[in-house]
């Protein structure tokens, strides 16, 4: 593995930012570090860039000790959350910067730099914007300049810190697809940080989920989505409904619904997690968890039902198969989660 992170730990004055992270990335891989704010994902990225020093642990890149190298010799291209473009330089000057500050011996000639800049402007679809200042660009354009600037030095590794964080939803989706294309063309190992699960699942080859400085799960997007290792991952990776239940003698009881528990179910109090759209509805006299409808919103074929199970309020989603009487406030309905996961509850 070209990128190997071993037992990496880092604490800021009081709280641990990263504890005992071990993680690898393959050559040319697109790895997402996913987690809520404060999970340590940006700290990890900044350690890879050399902008932070870990307290313990090891980072190797193609066998070389990356931590021993100063920032400027690591050959990593970093795109910052707010782009950090040089505001006093034009787009062209921004992109050329990394080449111009090279020592004379390895610095390309003026013409070569200009050619490289032109090539990147073209690749980033920034033609005609080379003479502008960053303040004269839109958010999406700035983002692409930042990426062009990072790619100009032909980095061995590309690091992206919430690359779409400051953009609106539509630009975000467009850039996401396009970033993946750029990555595939450049073939450079890329690590990117995001708190947006959809972004991570869509874009990455592998997703590493972090929580409070700990690595909770690593795997291919669909793998992590389908087989979340913990309640946190299930909850964080998509919309989730949680119901409290009990497993006793191979039987699972949730509210007034009892069924055979899966073989690997933990005994005792459990949290039952399911996606709000993975449910089957039944009439009030049928089988399933009984619920009282609090509110229902119909939009075309899709229906959102807010309902109360015992004292817990959950929101279910249905597509067409919802019995019409379930859509009235105060009505009683029954549902069974078609796919669910059980996690031992700390109750």
């Amino acid at each position: 593995m070209p990128l190997e992170i071993k037992s990496l730990s880092k604490a800021f004055s009081r709280y641990p930012a990263l504890s005992d992270i071990t993680l690898t990335a393959a050559e040319g891989e697109f790895l997402a570090l996913l987690g809520p704010s404060g999970s340590g994902k940006t700290t990890l990225l900044r350690i890879l860039a050399g902008l932070e020093q870990p307290d313990a642990g090891e980072v190797r890149f193609r066998g070389e000790d990356l931590l021993a190298a100063p920032v400027r010799r690591r050959g990593v291209g970093m795109v910052f959350q707010h782009y950090a473009l040089f505001r006093h330089m034009t787009v062209e000057q921004n992109i050329a910067f990394g080449l111009q500050v090279r020592p004379r011996a390895s610095r390309p000639g003026r013409a070569a730099i200009a050619a490289r800049v032109a090539e990147l402007l073209d690749l980033m679809q920034l033609d005609g914007l080379g003479k502008r200042y960053p303040s004269q660009l839109s958010g999406g354009q700035r983002q692409r300049v930042a990426l062009a600037r990072a790619l100009a030095i032909e980095p061995r590794m590309l690091l992206l810190d919430e690359p779409f964080g400051a953009l609106d939803a539509q630009v975000r989706r467009e850039l996401r697809r396009w970033l993946r294309q750029v990555h595939d063309r450049a073939g450079v190992t890329t690590v990117f940080v995001t708190h947006d699960q959809e972004e991570a699942l869509d874009l990455a080859d592998r997703v590493a989920v972090l929580r409070a400085g700990e690595l909770v799960q690593v795997g291919a997007p669909n793998d992590v989505y389908e087989n979340p290792a913990s309640a946190f991952v299930f909850d964080f990776l998509g919309e989730a409904c949680r119901l409290e239940g009990v497993v006793r003698d191979g039987r699972l009881t949730v509210a007034d619904w009892t069924t055979t528990a899966p073989a690997d179910a933990p005994e005792g109090p459990v949290d039952l997690f399911f996606r709000p759209n993975e449910v089957a509805f039944a009439p009030a006299d049928g089988v399933g968890v009984g619920a009282n409808v609090l509110a229902a919103a119909v939009r075309g074929a899709s229906v959102k039902i807010e309902c109360k199970v015992g004292e817990q309020v959950i929101e279910l989603q249905g597509l067409g198969q919802v019995p019409p009487q379930a859509l009235t406030r105060g009505a009683r309905l029954r549902f069974t989660p078609t796919r669910y996961r059980l996690f031992a509850a700390a109750r």
Binding site: G50, R72, V76, G77, M78, F80, F97, A150, A152
Partner: peptide
């Protein structure tokens, strides 16, 4: 942030100061 960006792009301390 801009100074950090300049560092990752390979600039040394003096270059960061005079150019950024």
């Amino acid at each position: 942030d801009e100074e950090a960006a300049a560092l990752t792009l390979g600039a040394g301390g003096a270059a960061v100061f005079t150019r950024v």
